Amino acid sequence: MRAPRERLTVAQFCAEMGISRSTFYDWKAKGRAPRCRKLPNGELRIDRADIESWYDALEVAA
């Protein structure tokens, strides 16, 4: 049996990353935020796996 996927709210993601909600929505508008899913009530959720993939893709060479 698969473990349930962890899904974060925008507020949880922002707190974890240390950014404001406006920064998140700016990144989202510019296509720089991790992939999100919109629930039927209009709220967004971000899968932990998508956050990890997004964060890994931000790596730069030293």
Rank of each mutant, 00 (worst) to 15 (best):
A11S: 14
D56V: 05
S53Q: 12
A11K: 15
P4E: 13
A57L: 15
M1T: 07
E16I: 05
P40M: 03
D56T: 09
F13Y: 11
A33L: 10
A61P: 15
A29S: 13
A11W: 07
P40G: 04
I51A: 04
A33M: 13
Y55D: 09
K28F: 01
E43W: 05
K30W: 09
F24L: 03
G42M: 12
E6S: 03
D26E: 12
R45H: 08
K38N: 03
R48E: 03
A57Y: 07
R7I: 04
A29W: 02
F24I: 04
A33H: 05
A11N: 14
Y25K: 06
Y25D: 02
A3T: 08
T9G: 09
W27Y: 10
G42K: 13
S22T: 02
I51D: 00
S20N: 05
S53Y: 09
L8T: 00
K30N: 15
S22C: 01
R48P: 06
L58D: 02
F24S: 02
G31M: 14
A29I: 00
K38G: 00
R5N: 06
E43S: 02
E6G: 00
A29P: 08
Y25G: 01
I46C: 06
M1K: 00
F13W: 07
R45T: 02
A57G: 15
D56K: 09
D47T: 04
S53C: 05
W27V: 00
G31H: 12
D26S: 11
I51L: 15
R21Q: 03
D50Y: 06
Y25W: 14
Y55C: 00
A15P: 11
A33N: 10
Y25V: 00
E16N: 01
V60W: 03
D47R: 15
F13M: 04
T23Y: 06
C14F: 08
G42I: 03
A29R: 11
E52D: 11
Y25C: 00
E43M: 12
Y55V: 03
R48F: 03
A15Q: 14
P34S: 04
A57F: 07
A11D: 15
D56A: 13
K28P: 04
F24K: 02
E16F: 04
E6K: 15
V60G: 05
W27L: 10
